[in-house]
Design a protein around this nucleic acid. Structure first.
Lengths: 125, 125
DNA sequence: ATGCATTGATTACGGATGTAGTCAAAGCAC
DNA sequence: GTGCTTTGACTACATCCGTAATCAATGCAT
C-alpha cells in the first residue's frame, strides 16, 4: 500500500515539490536531464498522478498547471515509517548504523543527529 | 535498480533469512499466516528469486532446499542507502526525525542511537 | 503394482508500470 | 484565415508483478 507513487512518478513529484505550479512542458524540461523522457511520457505520468490524487491541476488557458496534493514532508514521513517497519521493526538505530557503514555520515549529519538525540532524551523526561 | 526483490518476494526472503535451508512447502507454511498464498504462488516466487540470483537451491531427493544467496544485512544496507539517497540526499538525521515524529522511538532505540553517535564522533577523531 | 499426493517446470492472465503514439481542438504566426 | 504548434484525452504495448493453474514425473500407502 506504500506504492501509491512509483519510481517514475516520483521524479515528477520531486520536480513539483521543488517548484510549483508548473505546466507539463515545464516539468518535462526540468526532468529531462535526469531521464530523457519525451513530453508524452511526462504527460502520462502527470495524468496518473492526478488520478491517484497525488497532484491537483488548475486550468490556465488551454493547459493545466500542476501542483502537489501532498507535501514532500508528509510523503517522506510515510515512506520512512513503512521502510523502517519493513526492514527494522521500526527502529532508527540500525538505519543510522547502515548508513554510517555504507557511505559514512557527514559532520553536519552527525551534529544534527546529536542535537536530535539530546532532544529526544529530554522529551522522554 | 533497487527493485531486484519485489514486495511479495521479500516475504519469502524474510522467511529464509530467519531459517534456511527450507523446502517450498516449509516456506509456504511459514508465510501462510501473513499472506494466505497457495503453495503454487510460493513456488513461483521461489523460482523467480532463484532466477534473480537472490536464492540458491540444492536438490534434496526430488525437491529443492532453498537458501538465501545474499544476507539480510547486505540487502538491508543496500536498501537503506538507496532509500536515504532517494529521499534525503543520503542523510541520516531527517530519517531519525521522521521516525521520532511519526511513531516515537523506544528507550532502547534512543540508547542505541546515543551509543552509535558517540562512536561516530570518536571515529571522526 | 496402482492410485493418490507432492514436486518442479511451464504456462496463464489481469493489473500496474515505463514509455510512448494518435487524434482532435485550439491557438499563434504571418 | 490557413497551416504549424501545443495541449489534453485517449489508446498502445511490452514487461513486470501478484497470483495462480496445468502437466508430467516421481514417490508413498497399501
Amino acid at each position: 500500500m506504500s506504492k501509491l507513487i512509483t519510481d517514475a512518478e516520483f521524479e515528477v513529484m520531486d520536480v513539483l515539490w521543488r517548484q510549483s505550479p508548473l505546466a507539463a512542458s515545464d516539468v518535462a524540461a526540468e526532468v529531462a536531464p535526469k531521464t530523457s523522457w519525451t513530453l508524452k511520457t511526462v504527460k502520462t505520468l502527470l495524468s496518473r498522478l492526478v488520478d491517484k490524487g497525488a497532484l491537483t491541476h488548475e486550468a490556465e488557458g488551454r493547459r493545466y498547471l500542476y501542483r502537489p496534493a501532498i507535501s514532500r514532508k508528509a510523503y517522506a514521513k510515510n515512506e520512512t515509517r513503512s521502510f523502517a517497519e519493513k526492514l527494522f521493526a521500526g527502529r532508527a538505530a540500525p538505519i543510522v548504523a547502515h548508513l554510517a557503514d555504507s557511505r559514512g555520515l557527514s559532520e553536519d549529519d552527525i551534529q544534527d543527529l546529536e542535537k536530535l538525540i539530546a532532544e529526544l532524551k529530554r522529551d522522554a523526561h
